[in-house]
Design a protein around this nucleic acid. Structure first.
Length: 565
RNA sequence: GCACCCGUAGCUUAAUGGAUAGAGCACUUGGCUACGGACCAAGGGGUUGGGGGUUCGACUCCCUCCGGGUGCGCCA
């Protein structure tokens, strides 16, 4: 919602040539300048005049109606002092009416989306680095749905390939393999393959038999990957990530569509068998401009397929679902690979999906390393965070059962990790600081949850049924009241930016800002013991509106709001 | 070597090319007879990696150098 539309309308009425999209409202740098500011720069071209001149002229000539109490031109800016009571009333009323839809601009209406994310290799317990994909993907799915899209979330299960072959070999030697042992088994398998060429060769042989359809080998692959996937999903489930479809890579080994791709490549003379008998694509024939990354191997000499070959079939399969948007979340290490895949698909007249990239999560000590044990496992983090949180909850929510306390602690733990990861722009490396992520103070998910808990505490104590329509007598005009309401009004714009940029980081920063504004209001403006009944009710409604907005924002980040904590 | 991403306060980070670069952590000082102190108020701390350029105006765009991340023919 935009509470400033009356201003826009007045301006456009006086200057019909103005494009309303050029009117961008912002907060003035200092509160005594006014309640809302409007920059004149974008109007300079259409009105053929200098911004400061425009500001002065507009302030003198345009009648802005009852919402605006005062207009002051300040250089190239126009600063408005508003009838705050009226403006806040409009904002609160909108939120209380739209409730859990508040903030949606419904821009994805009637559009279907296929979104693939997470797709962790089934060989180990997910660490927080891998989980960045799941958190970004899951939040993106929530945002797309919130904006009206019909979203289908896909998870590609890499249930074959050399790594699984080696894992099967190690698994054979163990009595009963469980999920916890797989991380170790995987490391061991790789070390052995490096040291012992025969062992490595056995892995490749297993792969060939798998692709040829040997039922026993297929059973073994299935057993190992199922075990891994099940364990991984249990951890991802704690994060709140949900998937609609699991697509197994092994399904795409002998896909008929790959023949068509080969034909198209041959027609452009872009595929050849190299000196080591591999089937290779020469991407330079498809317009790839560099020497590095020019070759893309489809099949090994022994006839088994490479990952990319199967992925071509999988990508076409997703394309055939006919969605309006086809999006995948990828680590930045896949950038070149995705570009290569795109060239191949487009050469055969297919459309590659839109990629959303994210950079790696690093530790303060440097890169995460499985072999050196320098990883933070997601489950370990959640366990530690929940243990810390439950100690606090036991103190502060004594009337609750142990189960309820544990459930709250788990929500706090998830908020801590999801917020710590999602608030950073995805193209930047996240420096993951275990201590900071476990502290729950400052710019954190639990801080926002705490703000919500306080609001709910007020609402509980008020015991009023809060009407969704604010009364005509709505005496909110204090600075803190205005600031928090104005921030509430910015929600839709923040979500639209997140949607367009496919970047949910802004939602986290927005929620943080709103929570901070509310806390200032909370300390300055007593609600339950306000001077008048009208003021008390208006403030309760403002509280309700802030809570609703924070809930909606946190929902998009996959963070639950506990009633108490 | 080539390509892509990043570099902002001691640390972690924010800013559709626009007003005085905004927060959190840490540090200093103050605030609980409380609508919940997982909090608030105030303070110190910045040549936005270096150097050029474009622009009325650059953290933002272009060039270059330095530093970090990522990728570059039988891993997935």
């Amino acid at each position: 919602m935009n509470p400033y539309t009356p201003i826009t309308e007045s301006l456009c009425k006086h200057y019909p040539e103005i494009d309303p999209a050029d009117l961008v409202y912002s907060k003035p740098p200092s509160a005594d300048l006014g309640d809302v500011a409007l920059a004149m720069f974008p109007l300079a071209r259409t009105l053929k005049s200098a911004p400061p001149k425009i500001a002065a002229e507009v302030a003198e000539k345009v009648d802005f109606g009852p919402l605006v109490q005062e207009v002051t031109p300040t250089g190239p800016y126009l600063n408005f002092k508003l009838n705050r009571s009226q403006a806040i009333r409009n904002i609160v009323s909108t939120v209380l009416t739209e409730q859990s839809d508040y903030g949606s601009s419904d821009c994805g209406k009637d559009q279907r989306v296929v979104l693939e994310h997470t797709s962790i290799n089934p060989n180990a317990s997910p660490h927080v680095g891998r989980a960045r994909n799941a958190m970004i993907g899951d939040s993106l799915a929530r945002l797309l749905r919130f904006q009206g899209h019909d979203v289908e979330v896909h998870y590609y299960v890499n249930d074959m390939g050399r790594q699984i072959g080696l894992l099967v070999l190690v698994a054979e030697e163990l009595e009963d393999l469980n999920f916890e042992q797989i991380l170790e088994a995987y490391v061991e398998a790789n070390q052995r393959a490096e040291a012992d060429p025969d062992f490595a060769e056995k892995g490749y042989e297993l792969l060939v038999r798998m692709e040829e359809g040997d039922p026993e080998v297929q059973r073994q692959f299935r057993e190992v990957t199922d075990l891994c996937l099940k364990g991984q999903l249990a951890v991802l489930e704690r994060l709140g990530a949900r998937y609609d479809c699991f697509d197994r890579e092994s399904k795409y080994v002998r896909d008929a569509r790959l023949e068509k791709i080969q034909e198209a490549l041959r027609a452009k003379d872009a595929v050849f068998v190299d000196e080591e008998e591999r089937l290779v694509v020469d991407l330079s024939k498809l317009g790839y401009p560099h020497e590095q990354g020019r070759y893309f191997v489809l099949m090994r000499a022994n006839g088994s397929s490479m990952y990319g070959y199967r992925d071509i079939a999988y990508t076409m399969d997703k394309e055939s679902l006919g969605a309006d948007l086809n999006i995948m979340v990828l680590g930045e290490d896949h950038k070149l690979y995705a570009q290569q895949l795109q060239l191949i698909l487009e050469s055969a007249g297919h459309k590659a999906p839109e990629s959303v990239y994210y950079a790696y999560i690093l530790l303060k000590e440097g890169k995460m390393s499985t072999r050196q044990g320098k990883v933070v496992l997601l489950s370990d983090f959640l366990d530690q965070a929940a243990a810390l949180a439950v100690a606090r909850v036991e103190e502060q929510c004594r009337d609750l059962s142990a189960e309820e306390q544990q459930a709250i602690a788990e929500k706090v733990a998830v908020a801590a990790i999801r917020f710590a990861v999602l608030r950073v722009n995805p193209n930047k490396n996240v420096i993951f600081d275990m201590e900071a992520a476990l502290s729950f103070t400052g710019d954190t998910g639990p801080y926002i949850q705490y703000c919500c808990a306080r609001i709910q505490s007020i609402l509980r104590k008020a015991e009023d049924k809060i009407p969704t329509t604010p009364s005509a007598d709505f005496p909110l005009e204090a600075q803190a009241e205005w600031q928090v309401a104005a921030t509430v009004a910015e929600f839709e714009e923040a979500l639209l930016a997140a949607y367009e940029q496919r970047n949910v980081a802004g939602i986290g920063l927005y929620a943080l800002e709103l929570a901070r504004q509310f806390t200032t209001f909370y300390h300055e403006c007593p609600v339950l013991i306000a001077e008048s009944e009208a003021l008390r009710l208006a403030r309760l409604q403002l509280c309700q509106a802030v809570l609703q907005t924070l809930r909606n924002a946190l929902y998009l980040l996959g963070i639950d709001v506990p009633e108490q904590m």
